[in-house]
Amino acid sequence: MSQASDKVVIGKIGAPYGVKGWVKINSYTDTPEGIFNYSPWILGDGKEYQIDQWRPHGKSLVAKIENVESRDDAERIKNLDIHILADQLPELGEDEFYWRDLTGMQVVTTQGYDLGVVKDVFNTGANDVLQVKANSKDAFGQKERLLPFVFDQVVQSVDKSGKVITVDWDPGF
């Protein structure tokens, strides 16, 4: 894992909910309620916040954050990203990794062709996708490739220490 001082965005503060400082929460964690397993939250204003209470509200979540006592207070933190320190994330097994760990890794084919560097990782609903920025002198004229992150079919291995992802992929695509 990278430096412990790195911050990770795990959600976003939504609109105020009521008049007593409650806010809607947009969670980016695997299970929406999982966002409340992390404390403290560091909001986009750089300050640390503790969660006083939270509950489901329909298909969404609402929370009462300590020292946010009114609707005006809730308005001031609306739309701020919710960060935690990277060292708050659970330790992963040998063959597991966070998307953030894949960003910046070199992507090479099983034949040794260098496709470029992972610029981003995102989910399409069907599977995760690697956005690979091609090298400036790509022989196939590619500037960027989108590769499905599907083990055994496309992704053959991920070498975390060497920062290399090996894929079975035709460089012409």
Score class of each variant (00 low, 15 high):
Y98R: 14
D72Y: 08
W99K: 05
E96N: 13
A63C: 07
L80N: 09
D114S: 01
A63D: 01
D52S: 13
V68E: 08
W54V: 00
E69F: 14
Q131C: 13
I65E: 06
I42Q: 10
K137D: 15
G93K: 03
I82D: 01
W54L: 04
E91W: 03
I42T: 11
A63Q: 07
R145P: 02
A86N: 12
Q50Y: 12
V68I: 15
G104W: 03
W22C: 05
I65C: 03
H83D: 09
V108T: 15
M105A: 03
D120F: 07
I42R: 06
Q88P: 13
D87W: 08
A74P: 13
Q111H: 03
E144P: 00
V132G: 00
R145N: 03
K143W: 02
A86L: 11
W99R: 04
Y38T: 01
N123M: 07
S70N: 11
I35E: 01
G112S: 13
K20F: 15
L43W: 07
E66R: 13
V117H: 07
G116R: 00
I25R: 11
E91I: 00
D72T: 15
D73Y: 05
Y98G: 11
R76C: 12
Q142M: 11
V117A: 06
K143N: 11
I77H: 01
I25T: 13
K24Q: 14
Y28W: 09
K137M: 11
S136C: 02
T29E: 06
N123E: 07
P90R: 12
D87A: 09
V68L: 09
T109N: 10
Q111E: 10
F97L: 06
R71I: 05
L115Y: 01
V129K: 04
S136V: 09
I84Q: 02
V117C: 07
I65D: 04
D72M: 07
L102R: 01
F36S: 03
N37F: 11
Q111W: 02
L43I: 08
P56C: 02
M105P: 05
G44P: 01
V62D: 12
R71A: 08
Q106D: 06
L85E: 06
P90G: 07
Y38Q: 00
D95T: 10
D45K: 05
P40T: 15
L85C: 01
V117Q: 14
K20R: 15
D30N: 07
D128S: 13
N123S: 11
K133E: 09
L85P: 00
S136G: 05
W41C: 05
A86P: 08
A63N: 07
L80H: 09
G116H: 02
G46K: 11
F122S: 13
